[in-house]
Computed example of a mutant assay.
Amino acid sequence: MSIEVRPATDFDDVATLVGPKKPTSNVCFCLSYRIGSKENNALRGAQRADRVRELCHQDPPPGVIAYLDDEPVGWAAVHPRSATSFARNRLIPHVDDLEVWSLWCIRVRPGYRKQGISHALIEGAVAHAKQQGAPAIEGYPVDNHGEKVNPTMAYVGTRRLFEDAGFERAAETGSTLDGFPRVLMRLDLRGSHRRSKKAVSVVDSLP
Rank of each mutant, 00 (worst) to 15 (best):
R6Y: 03
A8L: 01
T9Q: 10
D10Y: 02
D10V: 14
V14I: 12
L17K: 03
V18L: 03
G19V: 01
G19P: 04
P20G: 04
K21G: 15
K22T: 12
K22Q: 12
K22C: 10
P23H: 05
P23Y: 05
S25E: 15
S25A: 15
V27K: 12
L31P: 00
S37K: 13
K38S: 15
K38F: 10
A42E: 15
G45Y: 09
A46T: 11
R48T: 06
A49W: 09
D50R: 15
R51E: 10
E54I: 00
H57N: 15
Q58V: 00
G63Q: 02
A66R: 07
D69P: 06
D69W: 07
G74Q: 10
G74E: 09
A77I: 05
R81Y: 11
A83S: 12
T84V: 07
R88Y: 12
I92G: 01
L98S: 14
V100T: 15
C105T: 13
C105G: 07
I106Q: 02
Y112D: 06
R113Y: 01
H119T: 14
E123F: 07
G124M: 05
A125G: 13
A127E: 14
Q131N: 11
P135M: 06
A136K: 06
A136E: 11
E138P: 08
P141K: 09
P141L: 10
V142R: 03
D143M: 08
H145C: 08
E147D: 14
V149R: 08
V149P: 07
T152A: 13
Y155K: 04
V156F: 07
T158K: 05
R159Y: 06
R160A: 15
E163F: 04
D164N: 13
A165D: 09
G166D: 10
E168M: 10
A170P: 06
A170K: 06
G174E: 05
S175P: 00
S175A: 15
D178L: 02
D178A: 15
G179S: 12
G179F: 08
F180T: 07
V183L: 09
M185V: 11
L189K: 02
L189M: 07
R194Y: 00
R194P: 00
K198T: 14
A199T: 13
V200P: 01
V200C: 12
S201N: 12
V202I: 15
P207R: 08
